[in-house]
Amino acid sequence: MDFLAPEAIAQLAILGFVFFMLLNSAAIMVYVERKVAARIQQRMGPTLVGPAGMLQPLADIIKLAMKEYLQPKSADPILFALAPIISAAAAFTAFAVVPFGAETTFFGLLDRPVPLQVADVNVAILWVFAVTSMGVYGIVLAGYSSNSKYSLLGALRSSAQMISYELSYGMAIAAVILLANTMSIRGIVEAQSGGFLDTTRWFLWLQPIGFFIFMTAGVAETNRAPFDFPEAEQELVAGYHTEYSSMSFAMFFLAEYINMVTVSAIATNLYLGGWNGPFLDDLGVGWIWFLLKLSFLLFFYVWMRWTLPRYRYDQLMAFGWKFLLPLSVINLLVTAAGVLYFAG
């Protein structure tokens, strides 16, 4: 392998760029969340730091970095330090296979087109699923190693919720794989291209229920409202990250926001056509459409958090097992029947 070939440098540049942008996206989401929450609640939100409060995340990060790192005396030191690392690492790794643009030559700088993605894997969807399952361990270990009642309860509830909703998540993905006939996310996006204004072949129109299931399960997977009972302040102090402070706490939050971004990015690629859209895709800047759709889904996440009341834990589990899972199985069966009938 020629390590100084332009493609290799482009690949490394994309890697660095994705990492950097994921970190930025977490910071931007912090700001967006606080501003949108404020506006929904008819107040102003952060306005002091920087123009319209835009440097607020920077202030938050500096504050968090300067806090003292506390560890309970009876906590398990290795696991206590390891848990946020696992959470954050899983969150970043899941995004590694998500493509955000068509193959591009960077306006002619390269000889061969390079896909806008960190790694192009044939079983990309399963990779995301696998790494998301690994993220559960960060939470479980955080709760266990803190050696505190609230943390353990919060962690067990949170991880039980995550593994319950993984089933519906997987079935919704399976239905999309049936439609696209490939497991590579790039292939799924390319199967949605074409049609009037590049929008009529989105899987959203073919699978509205699937999209609903995916988004609901995604919200539950990332422990966001209305499924954030395990980390609700009024219930369990703060759930699994009660005992964490400063940068470990920041890493948990980073992991949560990046999981949100990953779920939204995959929903964009699977259901909303990824970077397909009128006009811009032909000019080679389809990633602008990707960003727009991603931003809409992230706004939807924040909107849901500050509008809907929280599910109680048993309601949450009943919803996942007794409603969402049968619905996703039926969705899969109907999709399979449809594919067999219309294309078989």
Partner: peptide, 8 residues
């Protein structure tokens, strides 16, 4: 990948 999803 199946090993990671199911086993791990």
């Amino acid at each position: 990948v199946i090993q990671i999803i199911v086993y791990a």
